[in-house]
């Protein structure tokens, strides 16, 4: 793996049809707002001094989830080689927020972009042993070829965007 996991991450994401948007802690909100289509849902972000704008509903019901255009959640880490993000679900509702909306916006800290599967599984094993109940290795939007041709957006999002907090 190169010394530049983020460059690799960006090109891997591009291959699976995901845009990488770079930002920093203080620019986060102004970066996110243009990416939102409303109604938007989300789960609270775990990064210090980073929070979701009010337009993002963090306690949605079924109707709001199903109507949501955008779902914003944190992603535990990224895998540069594959263009994947790890969605860790929990009581805060990362799982439904990342799954029902048309577009999933995943927020990843720059220091959490891991080079490859080796590094990822070292970390996954550690997390799972310390009680992380869920880790979805998500790569690109949901997809199916079951209806006779490849369709993006099956039961999950049609589109995925990764927002990278470069100073985290």
């Amino acid at each position: 793996m190169s010394a530049e996991p983020i460059t690799t991450f960006e090109s891997s994401l591009e291959e699976v049809g995901v845009e990488l948007v770079r930002t920093s802690t203080d620019q986060f909100e102004s970066t996110l707002i243009p990416l939102l289509s409303t109604p938007a849902v989300g789960a609270p972000l775990p990064f210090e001094n980073v929070s979701l704008p009010d337009a993002v509903e963090t306690d949605p019901g079924v109707e709001e989830l199903e109507a949501a255009k955008t779902g914003v959640t944190a992603a535990g880490y990224g895998i540069a080689e594959y263009g994947s993000v790890i969605i860790q679900g929990g009581p805060d509702g990362e799982e439904p927020a990342s799954l029902y909306a048309d577009e999933h916006v995943a927020v990843v800290a720059g220091s959490d972009v891991l080079p490859d599967m080796d590094a990822t599984f070292d970390r996954l094993a550690e997390d799972i042993r310390s009680d992380a109940g869920q880790a979805i290795i998500a790569t690109g939007p949901s997809a199916t070829a079951d209806m006779g041709a490849l369709v993006k957006g099956a039961h999950g999002p049609v589109e995925v965007t990764v927002v990278l907090l470069e100073d985290r």
């Binding site: 079924v62 989830l65 509702g93 799972i128 998500a138 790569t139």
Partner: peptide, 27 residues
């Protein structure tokens, strides 16, 4: 190279689930 989702669940999971009144309740 990899499918869209490789889900690693260590159940029982605690993601919020749907209540009878169609709200997201505790999982």
């Amino acid at each position: 190279d990899i499918t869209s989702y490789v889900s690693l669940f260590t159940p029982p999971g605690d993601s919020p689930t749907f209540d009878v009144d169609d709200e997201l309740g505790s999982g």
